[in-house]
Design a protein around this nucleic acid. Sequence first.
RNA 1: GGGCGGUUAGCUCAGCUGGUUAGAGCACCUGCUUUACACGCAGGGGGUCAGAGGUUCGAAUCCUCUACUGCCCA
Length: 879
Amino acid sequence: MPKAYDPKKVEDKWYQFWLKKNYFRAEVDHNKKPFTIIMPPTNITGELHVGHGLTMTLEDIMIRWHRMKGEPTLWLPGFDHAGIATQVVVERVLASEGTDRHKLGRKKFEERVWQWARDYLKTIREQKQKLGCSADWSRERFTMDEGPSKSVRTAFVNLYDKGLIYKGERIINWCPRCLTAISDLEVDHKDLTGNLWYVRYPYEDGSGYITVATTRPETILGDTAVAVNPDDERYKDVIGKKVILPAVKRVIPIIADEAVSLEFGTGAVKVTPAHDPVDFEIAQRHHLPLIQILNDNASMNGNAGPYKGLDRFACRKAIVADLERDSLLVKIEPYSHAVGHCQRCGTIVEPLASKQWFVTMKPLAQPAIEAVRDGRIIIVPERFNKIYFQWMENIRDWCISRQLWWGHRIPVWYCKDCGKLTVAVEPTTKCQHCQSKNIEQDPDVLDTWFSSALWTHSTLGWPDDTTDMRYFYPSTVMETGYDILFFWVARMIMMGLEDTGNIPFQTVYLHGLVRDEKGEKMSKTRGNVRDPIDIAAEFGTDAMRCAFLTGLAPGADSKLTDVKLENGRNFANKLWNATRFVVKGIPDGKIDLTIKYGSLPTEDRWILSRLNRTIAKVNKMMDDFQLGEALKDIYEFLWSEYCDWYIEMAKTRLRPEYKGTSPLPVLIHVLETSLRLLHPFMPFVTEELWQNLKYRLPAGWRTTDSIMVADYPVADEKAFDDSAEQVMTSIIEIVRAIRNARSENKVAPNRWVTAEIYGGGLAPAIIPYTEAMQTLARAKPLTFHETRLKGTVTENAVVSVLTETDVVIPIASMVDMAAEKERLQKEIGQLEADITRLETRLKDESFLGKAPAAVVNKEKERLAERKDRLARLKQQAGF
RNA sequence: GGGCGGUUAGCUCAGCUGGUUAGAGCACCUGCUUUACACGCAGGGGGUCAGAGGUUCGAAUCCUCUACUGCCCA
């Protein structure tokens, strides 16, 4: 084995091995409960980013863990056609080629996008594999595949038949760049500083003006009324009067409506029903006409009179100039307000009245609220419940039609003869009502999230009654980012319940955003994006997976830093070298790996005890989705206990002259078990090392061909050994005390010191470790006393009073007695403070009365221990 | 405007349902070619857990308020 771990040499090799062995494939076993994760479908808009890296890591860990626990485990991977997003990127490519989709035509354009899709499907799949994903590629799905597409049409038709999908004219958000309607969720509100223009509308009878305030003067062209609040004393007498609309000289009424705020502007507002949601509702109540003033691209249309053809913002300028000229502009105030932007392209969206398809959400939301409220679905972390409920309880109808070419075509055909609609799952050529062939399919496609909402069941075969659907639905965990809780998770719950009558998943695990070193969001415009594939190449995939988990709490944003990556890499290398050491100790030929439990030395019982406690803790943490904490425990066990102490102590036992129990069986057992414990987190290095061990050990040592299908460790409580832990703690304390004394007294590293150890009752247990302690502390000879130190040691000695033992190091070389006194004084002060605190607590009647007996006893023991130590310290140090 | 987080060592963060002497990594300081590992080893310094009040025998942990900060919704 080389000196350092080189991930490049092993990762591909093992991934191909796993693939060839078909380990990723989920098999139905009706005797067992499956564990299922449906992978969030990856957008085909581009390559993977670090957010995907986190998702893949978290899900792969859960999947590998459950697979090793012996559960039939399905991780179903897939892709999302990402309607608008993909169309935007492909259009950009077309633009760079000097063409556009209209020149190409719909059919050619769709072919072009399919080509793009096929390319990215392949690239992204390979990237996921690079990251170690143990997904079932045989079940991979794409939202545009025939199966999921049929699910989409079926779900649409079902909702339509139930009256939950309707087509109607409503105010929607229009993106003038993407030329499509978008849902409320796809609009980002940003506060912009604009102006509030106060404009005079002259009364028709010439009796003066009413002044209205607006942030969008160009919409004056679409006004069909002026409204005031019915309770507004200022305007009581003008209700019912008529005013002349500036710029276009149309005569419109002044009406009263509750929706008008008394505080905004002058209290009188202009009503533009075709371009404002509140105004639209006012218009409905007062039967006002709608006047559209915008073309699709947000230039002014024929209703704009003289402003026709101007862009909306040019028009705004022109109108303001004209108002000023006509002395109709009272004043301009700076005004900051939220302006909607298209999430995809950043263009300011226009609210406008348009005929679109909508889903009635309230009846779908109710059962989805109940599913979370009654605990059938658990959201981790819990605080997202509140956010979920709040959104669901105020849910509004969902605009699902998009004026795009890329996506699922709406399964509705219009009859040009009888005018009726045919809504059908299977494409049709004739009208259901009059059999006419003169029909035309709705040109629009569905919101990409409509198909995403069905993902948990469309991927398993719904609406067909498939084996997978019966066995794997509902899935166990839905792991995704909190940023798409509304977009996706909420809608999956609603549609899952609606389509199947059952929840789509039992637990929702939400992760946060991965940010850069400075805590900034990664984005192309900031230029701080990191490609997970590059990172994996530089540090190793396992190191990257570690980095994602360090300091990760569910639902919290995290930073990906080089320091974390280096740590992960170092840990992999540490493991590599620990294994190298163990492997070096394995003799050629016969080796007996039986652990003789009856006669194990203390450090063996200690490391086995620590191992099993770690296993117990890790399994508990995994159950609670505390993946980061679980990894941390394994890391600390392996590094600080196994490597730092157990291996170091084993070294003396591996010397040829050593005649006692060989440490090899335990050394190997603990390492091998730890590798299995760690495998879900660091699949590549653990497989490589496990195979290395397997190769050198007798045939039949392990029955599986790969660590990834070996058993996940289960804690053996019989291995918990308090007394071994107590003895080892003392041994570690003694070694540390001597090292510490050496260091503080600047003893040359190669110089041997001597020490006397007063072990009391523990002495017999410690004495067998003389040689190990000598080596570890570079102290020889060590003299043991089966008593506690009595009397005073005054001269030329460093005294360390430990929990169970005392160490006295008499050395002429430790000259700095003043420093030593100071250290002792500090320690005494610390102990005295502890004692005071403990005594106060133990005198407190309410503490004694109310605290559990175990806590009181613990405090008593602690006090006794401190007092004992203080007494010894004072006595021995001669204070 | 409504809601949800965060504030713990110089930096980045753990610390889950209240009960250790509050931890880790990095950084810093002092040493080290100790035959697995300098991607390493040994030792060390560093925190009144944002502030105030409250509940409790006991609070980093629960409650209230304040300050700063981030996000979501409207």
